[in-house]
Design a binder for these strands. Structure first.
Ligand SMILES: NC(=O)c1ccc[n+]([C@@H]2O[C@H](COP(=O)([O-])OP(=O)(O)OC[C@H]3O[C@@H](n4cnc5c(N)ncnc54)[C@H](O)[C@@H]3O)[C@@H](O)[C@H]2O)c1
Ligand SMILES: NC(=O)c1ccc[n+]([C@@H]2O[C@H](COP(=O)([O-])OP(=O)(O)OC[C@H]3O[C@@H](n4cnc5c(N)ncnc54)[C@H](O)[C@@H]3O)[C@@H](O)[C@H]2O)c1
Lengths: 231, 231
DNA sequence: TTTTTATTGTGAATGAGTTCACATACCACG
DNA sequence: CGTGGTATGTGAACTCATTCACAATAAAAA
């Protein structure tokens, strides 16, 4: 490679990997615990030990966003926690709507932890006439027919999709049309959304399948190879 | 450094990445749909198009486990589905126990899809006297006090942890002691388990935080850098 | 003030995972 | 039975993430 490669601009827009963001969530929780335990500072070594990561990983992750530590001392627990909250965008409130208040949906509404984290369920939608108009933890269930208008009117920023799989893509499409840019999906389907919409899918079947795989192939994969060949 | 690290001799034991296993689950579902649509064969190109992956990725993933396709033609839909089921270990039944039948736990018990997939909830445990002995979808709720003995007696292979966060580590430890090697955890904590135990954690808060991050930093991270510095 | 000690922040090295590219092989059809 | 068209399977190249290693530097000790 030539010494001066064609670097068009400064790489200001560094790409942050998904894993780094996931670890920021981990650090955030770890720091909350450290704070509760009365620590004022923590080293990357200690933080890594607690979360089963490497010190270098911790430092590298944080370095993408700035210099938060003090050499020879470590990171200020409480302050770093605040900075990570800011980076993750959880230093504010988010207006969330739940779509489909069945088994999973009801559990989510009842879960107070999300609210404490700043994710406020402001609206609930369903298509079941028996549910529409009923009260769930102080929130009146709206008719799915009014989805787009209500999402806009109530300034919803994140939708949680908890409808049956066959209805999920349609619901997602309608959310997109209503301008929603972030969704959490519980239906076991790969929803198609535009590039500028952030979609996360919580697929419990996939997690169970992963467990299953890891049990069948206890560490090694030789078994699978054999099985697959003779099958 | 290396206390007793055995140098891996034969490269027979290829390491299959987590992402590959996750994608096998995706292929499995896609093939089920293709089968329902009446297809007999499918090319890596078509499979990739449907699931938003690359053809090379599909072929490489499958090649770790054998040669399932026919050059010039593609993969036999139904047959490949069976082979993947076998690789994932979902061509059989798994005995599952649910621990903690609150909001989330109740939703899981009510969910028939897991059973159809081969994951059978055989036992339910709780520590609430009002719940113990009650019936959930035909399953009598057991006393958590009997956890270890019942797990063994009923040959449970996978446990699903749906108890409050503060109780989760203790429950996990007890499962480990009872010989459980696979767990799905819903509590928002990083549980510590031995290396030979496979643990998956479904952390919804982390998913919401990811959405939050992606909204705050619409594509770029410059904002974060600035904010973090001036904060 | 100077020295010692500890730990960060970060380029460079390594490693893992993805994509490329093409030889290989099979089917269909004439 | 050979030829054309097509899609697999896989080593090599590449890209992205993790780990290494150490200079930089702040705090504490002397
Ligand atoms: N229950 C679980 O433990 C579980 C686990 C994993 C995944 N999931 C998935 O989560 C989703 C919901 O599961 P559930 O068990 O809560 O199902 P459910 O049937 O109990 O609830 C679905 C709810 O969505 C409503 N609904 C149906 N169609 C709708 C539409 N077009 N618009 C608006 N609302 C509509 C129904 O009235 C119902 O209230 C499903 O996709 C399921 O596969 C559930
Ligand atoms: N409800 C949700 O939507 C949601 C979402 C994300 C994560 N979670 C997590 O899932 C877990 C369960 O949440 P939930 O909302 O169902 O809570 P919950 O309080 O409704 O249910 C917890 C159940 O566990 C039982 N329990 C408590 N301690 C126990 C113990 N030591 N042994 C056995 N059983 C015990 C309780 O009796 C109760 O039935 C929590 O860790 C929570 O953080 C829940």
């Amino acid at each position: 490679m030539s010494s001066h490669t064609t670097t068009p601009k400064k790489p200001r827009t560094r790409r942050i990997s998904e894993s780094t963001i996931r670890r920021l969530s981990i650090y955030y929780r770890a720091l909350a615990r450290l704070e509760a335990e009365g620590y004022h500072t923590v080293s990357s070594k200690e933080l890594a030990r607690r979360e089963r990561l490497t010190p270098a990983q911790v430092r590298k992750d944080l370095s993408f966003f700035g210099s938060f530590g003090t050499r020879g001392l470590g990171y200020p627990v409480s302050e770093l926690r605040g900075k990570i909250a800011r980076i993750l965008g959880i230093d504010r409130m988010w207006n969330v709507a739940l779509i489909g208040v069945g088994n999973i949906g009801s559990a989510l509404v009842a879960y107070k932890e999300f609210q404490r984290q700043g994710f406020h369920i402001r609206r609930i939608f369903d298509n079941d006439q028996r549910k529409i108009g009923s009260n769930h933890k102080g929130i009146m269930v709206s008719d799915i027919a009014d989805l787009e208008s209500e999402l806009k009117a109530s300034k919803i920023e994140i939708t949680v999709i908890a409808v049956p799989a066959h209805a999920a893509q349609d619901v997602a499409d309608r959310c997109v049309r209503a301008g929603i840019k972030a969704m959490l999906n519980f239906a076991p389907v790969n929803l198609k959304v535009p590039d500028d919409v952030c979609l996360r899918t919580e697929n419990m079947s996939m997690e169970l399948e992963y467990l299953s795989f890891s049990r069948v192939n206890q560490g090694s994969v030789e078994t699978v190879l054999l099985d697959a060949e003779k099958a």
